[in-house]
Design a protein around this nucleic acid. Structure first.
Lengths: 339, 339
DNA sequence: ACAGTTGCTGCAATGGTTTGCAGGCTGATG
DNA sequence: CATCAGCCTGCAAACCATTGCAGCAACTGT
């Protein structure tokens, strides 16, 4: 059905080798011959079959990407980075959605392994041991997870948390709740680390709540708990939770940012669309996707480098409208009289 | 590097043919032999190389999916449906993000064509002529677009618009704005068709505005125009626009749903998370993705059927909190005195 | 005119898998 | 015991592309 290299060869009256070379090693074939070949190929609509090439060269030009959930904006942004970068370097991507299931994660990389040059694992949920088993199957790069021995692109989650905390502290907040996400989250641990490290210097007391599901519902659930603890600001695990918090707070009649400040994490699209736009720390998800495929491809070139490459991407606090100075305490010396 | 059928054959002391058959035509090989083969394969961690199989059988077990923008929740939901269904039928998906560019769309299906059994094109932006050219390259099924001669899965957009309109009419609205999306959108045309068909029967006057970009910004821009036209309700092209409308309305001090009703379209995740949850018509995006891969695979089986298959999926109005009866007109006979 | 380059091209092997065909073994039938 | 029909199994060709090697022509320098 589809047109092969043989038909082009026949059409251009050359051997298949020449056709092949015309595409992959242009300088090796006579300019006139090449022109002819390319022209015939164009007319016939020939597209090389990369699978066949992969068989002989060992390089397929495909890369695998597995995400826990494509419908999650955090991951779809990452995925977008991967596909965009892959296209730039003339690769195509195999996608697998693991449906948040560690077993599926392992299974799909096995299924893809033979057809790709390597796979990028976004926030893999699986155990280190399982991960270990996958290495050797095919080259791997991790995103948003740090496992000894594996190349990874990481985001400075801890630093983001620090920025958020300092921002809040500078506004005058002294008692801040942190709503944790899933216990197993690497990024979550990092954030907590950053928070704990920065808290003393900022002279703030953190109230650690959770874990909660990293969803809108998780946020509404957490809001009440935070409120009961008498904090003036809330740091949510991610934007989805933060939006849940915002909603619950509105429902209970507490004003944001007047009564309480809220900051999210990730900066998904939605964050700028809430009725009062969300202050959040931006994670460079798309950049992470791009970096991951670069790392993967570089790693394939340079087999030699002993220690696994890792790329750190900066995070940045985006101040919007859900943060403000806390209401002055009634008896406080600093209470502003006028106004 | 990777373990091939040959090593399994050696390990199980049989020929490669037998190993191959043990996997693909189990009933043809002796039960004991098969057990042995499967066991050795398991031990060695053998995974068949589907690319090689594809070369000889012409069926790769891969399907291509191209979307205009993975980061768009509408498409990521569709994509999720595709990947989920593909996994169930033991296929893997090749993903391409066309970045909303018709040229890229055409290009990527060309690039994938040889490696997949067919491709599903989600809301393709390209011209009918271009589309035509692609047919013949590889089997294709369309989603959310109706082009003569091609199998497609379609959503009853017109009916969704009808439901929304009737809902609004039943609440008492008589003058309703419709905010159109991109002019080239098939779904948009369908909706308009449904709207126009239903309006007379409902005794409502529609004010057709647009086209606008189908985004948050498009919505804020459109809101002012709608307001100026003195409507009591707004039907937006999609939820993103509706959220933009909501925001702009809030900023201008008009209360939703008291002063004006708003209904969106699509029912993306975000719709239920706005401070006042959005009334919208639900598009079965994930179901559409699943249906698309089914249609594609069925089409491959039954080459014979002459007329292209098409699957229509129902849409459904989801009433949440942005719709309510309009404020009674000051001089109206029906104005409620008490209260 | 000759040997040595240089530049281009074709032959044939290669990769991992499927599959048509033929051969071998077992057991049943006569 | 001969025949024949299943069953299984192996051999070898095929799929599409890449690439080392060798061949060939034209050109260089002498």
């Amino acid at each position: 059905m589809a047109v092969t290299i043989h038909e082009v060869a026949k059409g251009a009256e050359v051997s298949v080798s020449t056709v092949s070379r015309a595409f992959t090693m242009p300088e090796m074939v006579n300019a006139a011959t090449r022109r002819k070949v390319l022209q015939v190929a164009e007319e016939l609509g020939y597209q090389p079959n990369r699978a066949a090439r992969g068989l002989v060269t060992g390089k397929t030009g495909n890369i695998g990407v597995v995400v826990p959930d494509v419908a999650n904006p955090f991951f779809s942004a990452m995925l977008k980075g991967c596909t965009a970068r892959a296209r730039e370097v003339r690769h195509v991507v195999f996608l697998a959605d693991a449906a948040e299931d560690p077993r599926i994660e392992a299974e799909v990389v096995g299924a893809m392994a033979k057809q790709v040059d390597g796979v990028v694992l976004c926030s893999p949920r699986m155990e280190p041991a399982q991960l270990e088993r996958l290495v050797g199957t095919t080259p791997i790069v991790l995103v948003n997870r740090d496992e000894a021995g594996l190349p990874a692109v990481l985001m400075e989650s801890a630093d983001g948390a620090r920025q958020a905390l300092e921002h809040l502290a500078a506004l005058g907040h002294r008692r801040i709740a942190h709503l944790a996400g899933p216990a197993a989250s690497w990024a979550g641990e990092e954030r907590l680390r950053g928070l704990r490290a920065a808290a003393p210097a900022c002279d703030v007391e953190t109230v650690e709540l959770g874990p909660f599901p990293p969803t809108f519902q998780g946020g509404v659930q957490a809001a009440d708990l935070a409120l009961a603890r008498g904090v003036t600001a809330i740091l949510a695990f991610n934007d989805l939770m933060a939006v849940g918090v915002l909603n619950r707070l509105a429902a209970r009649g507490v004003a944001v940012p007047e009564d309480i400040s809220v900051v999210g994490y990730d900066d998904i699209e939605m964050s700028s669309m809430t009725t009062v736009p969300l202050t959040t720390v931006r994670m460079p998800m798309e950049a992470a996707g791009r970096a991951a495929v670069d790392l993967l491809l570089d790693g394939l070139e340079a087999r030699d480098s002993p220690e696994p490459a890792r790329r750190w991407l900066p995070t940045q606090l985006i101040v919007r409208s859900t943060t403000a100075p806390p209401r002055p305490e009634p008896g406080s010396a600093h209470a502003q009289a006028g106004r």
